[in-house]
Design a protein around this nucleic acid. Structure first.
Length: 671
DNA sequence: GCACTTTATGTTTTT
DNA sequence: CATAAAGTGC
């Protein structure tokens, strides 16, 4: 719910302006979501636009959900029905589903996650070198996002490695086409190609989406920008919201240049700056401003605040990551006790997902509830991917990665040798694995013992497909799971606790599918595509009173009364490779690392605690670390904070004192 | 030939 | 410490 102070004059201007393309430069905490939601409400209520003529695009599902919720809250019941609020990728799926015929796809196309894509590339490159495969995958993604075709990549390659990558790119595309599958990048690339080749299809979408709102434009890549331009068309009725200081997805092909490009492409672009910060107290904002002042500016912008100076920013040096995590846990307990606040007022933010592990251990030890955001999403868990493979196969039997996963889960007497024979046969006949398995030509090659499980499998899949097209999604799903014996298979494994966790996750998943099937009337096939894009983790954990553990990237767009930034060290933030080698590291990389810390700092409302470790465990031994150069940049201009929060007392003895206090409290409250 | 157990290995960030 | 390749019963 938004606090109901009136909009300030720039916010009002941003809401009202709709004579043409509009760019809102929204500093951190300047109320941009308020502006966007108010603008949507105004378009519907006062400007005579239908909700289904408006689309608001975001980058994350979380942002989409929040915007959706706030729009519904702002508008009378039902008035937001038909409004499109989703991620770029989800819009891509809707477009491709509806225009499947024109895009040369079946509407039931599969969506591959990056693990599937990785496996395909590994196969094509015929290597086990993980770093190489990752590089190839990355290169292909950058090519796609830059709208470079495999032919163009081949033509422009000057060295052997690039030329080989371009060949793999071509084969990769061919493989995906054979599978009737798309990767994440295709969800944007294919609509762009479709619109450019078929103007009449584009026209249909332009007349449906009459007003566009785009969140976080600074994170758009060339491809997304193109999609935006195509959809906006010559009418150019859109509002883009962004902040050049918060661009943190350069590694994904996003380019801040798009902000400037917007001005070049739309000379009549109205630029409105939101510079009043409603979120952070003075010292926090001063630290943020001091830091970001070290970056070159695309647009001049100075955040200011009417809130008081607040608490000093604390910078603490820790011995190692275990010490850091313990100290964070105890600090949260102590502060929450002192302030009588909620756990959910606290967030611990870090650079890399692996840093969460120590923090989790420390928080568990102190019995502090926490939720993890970012990192492995619910849908990336092995058991969920097992179930999803079955669903994908039902929707699209040409989906070979799904076929392999499904036919081997649980094990049914079909092993690598049989699959290899099947793969060879399928390749020779240009068939998908499933189609090959159904052919009599293939069974003729095998002895009867090995044919039987395959025939059983294909018959079973066909029967479930038949049912999936007719019966409610939830029932089909549950019947299928019990028929394939997943439950027994997991329980057979040695770790009973893990098995029960898995079954619970599968149960949650079934519940989720059931609910969505009933609520939105979606088919199993549609839900399968949705599942590939959505993380359910956050949906489940949003209302809990728990400390939030999050990567800096995943924290964008969120705010917390108390924020703790951990691991603010050279090598981690800035990350090594972004700064290490001045010969290869572009200044842009370092600037992005700086923006990442800026994003972290500006999440904080009332207090900010930054820590770094003098040494950190790497492989088996410790590695000495230096505090991040960014800390110097903050402290020169911001109020200098003591490294040790309690002078005269060593951190260890202070922690011991706090722990004692907490133990007493816990004992007396009896939990 | 299939499924399961041991051993080398190497860590950014997300749809 | 978690994943993926190579090795061992069945």
């Amino acid at each position: 719910m938004s606090e109901h102070h009136d909009l300030n004059s720039s916010q009002r201007e941003a809401v009202r302006y709709q004579d043409g393309p509009c760019l809102i430069l929204a500093g951190a905490g300047s109320g941009k979501t308020r502006v966007v939601t108010h603008k949507i409400a105004r378009l519907i209520q006062e400007c005579g636009l239908e909700a289904h003529n408006i689309a608001a695009l975001t980058f994350t599902n979380k942002a989409a959900r929040e915007m959706q919720a706030r729009c519904s809250a702002l508008l009378p019941d039902g008035a937001s029905r038909g409004l499109t609020v989703c991620t770029f990728h989800a819009l891509g799926v809707s477009i491709l589903r509806r225009e499947a015929v024109h895009a040369g796809l079946k509407p039931q196309f599969s969506i591959l996650d990056s693990d599937d894509a990785y496996a395909i590339i590994q196969d094509l490159a015929a290597t086990t070198d993980r770093a190489l495969v990752r590089r190839l995958q990355n290169q292909i993604s950058l090519w796609k996002n830059g709208l470079v075709t495999s032919e163009a990549a081949q033509a422009s390659s000057t060295d052997d490695a690039t030329s080989r990558a371009a060949r793999i790119f071509r084969d990769y595309n061919a493989t995906l086409a054979a599978y009737q599958a798309l990767d994440f990048d295709d969800l944007i690339v294919r609509p762009v190609e479709l619109f450019e080749q078929m103007p009449e299809v584009l026209y249909r979408w332009q007349s449906r989406l009459r007003y566009l709102l785009i969140d976080e434009v600074q994170d758009t890549n060339a491809c997304q920008y193109r999609l935006l331009k195509l959809l906006a068309g010559p009418r150019a009725m859109f509002t883009a919201v962004g902040d050049d200081d918060q661009g943190i997805y350069g590694w994904r092909g996003a380019t801040l240049e798009n902000l400037a490009q917007l001005q070049r492409d739309y000379p009549n672009l109205k630029v409105i700056k939101l510079e009043q910060n409603y979120r952070s107290s003075g010292r926090i904002l001063a630290a943020a401003n001091a830091l970001i002042a070290h970056n070159p500016k695309l647009f001049e912008k100075k955040l200011w605040s009417e809130l008081g100076p607040g608490e000093p920013v604390i910078v603490a040096a820790m011995n190692d990551e275990a010490h850091e995590a313990d100290s964070i846990a105890i600090r949260i307990s102590a502060l929450r006790f002192e302030r009588r606040g909620k756990y959910s007022d606290y967030a611990v933010l870090y650079r890399g997902n692996h840093q969460a592990r120590v923090l989790e251990q420390a928080l568990r030890r102190e019995r502090i509830p926490y939720v993890l955001s970012g990192g492995q999403s619910f849908f990336e868990r092995a058991e969920i991917k097992d179930v999803c493979a079955w669903l994908r196969l039902l929707a699209n039997e040409d989906d070979d990665p799904a076929f392999i996963r499904a036919i081997t889960t649980p094990k049914r007497g079909i092993g690598s040798a049989t699959l290899e024979a099947l793969g060879a046969y399928a390749a020779k006949r240009h068939l998908s694995l499933f189609a090959a398995a159904c052919e009599s030509g293939f069974s003729a090659q095998l002895d009867a013992r090995r044919i039987e499980p395959i025939e059983q499998f294909t018959t079973f899949v066909n029967r479930m497909q038949w049912r999936a097209a007719r019966e409610p999604a939830g029932i089909v799903l549950r019947d299928m799971l019990s028929a394939i014996g997943l439950e027994a298979w997991y329980l057979d494994s040695q770790d009973q606790r893990a098995a029960r966790d898995r079954l619970q996750n599968i149960e949650d998943f079934c519940g989720w599918i059931e609910q969505r099937a009933q609520q939105d009337g979606k088919t199993l096939a549609e839900l399968t595509q949705l599942v590939a894009l959505i993380g359910m983790l956050d949906e489940k954990s949003e209302d809990q009173d728990a400390v939030r553990l999050s990567t800096l990237h995943a924290a964008k767009g969120l705010e917390f009364p108390h924020v703790m930034l951990v691991g603010v060290e050279e090598g981690l933030l800035p990350h090594k490779g972004s700064a290490d080698d001045p010969a290869t590291a572009l200044p842009a990389r370092l600037e992005e690392e700086r923006r990442l810390l800026y994003v972290g700092i500006t999440r904080a409302q009332r207090s900010l605690h930054i820590s770094w470790c003098k040494k950190r465990k790497r492989a088996r031994d410790f590695e000495m670390r230096e505090r991040s150069r960014f800390l110097d940049e903050i402290e020169i201009e911001a109020s200098a904070a003591p490294e040790d929060p309690t002078p005269g007392l060593s951190p260890q003895s202070r922690l011991a004192g706090l722990r004692e206090l907490l133990n007493k409290t816990r004992a007396s409250s009896g939990s």
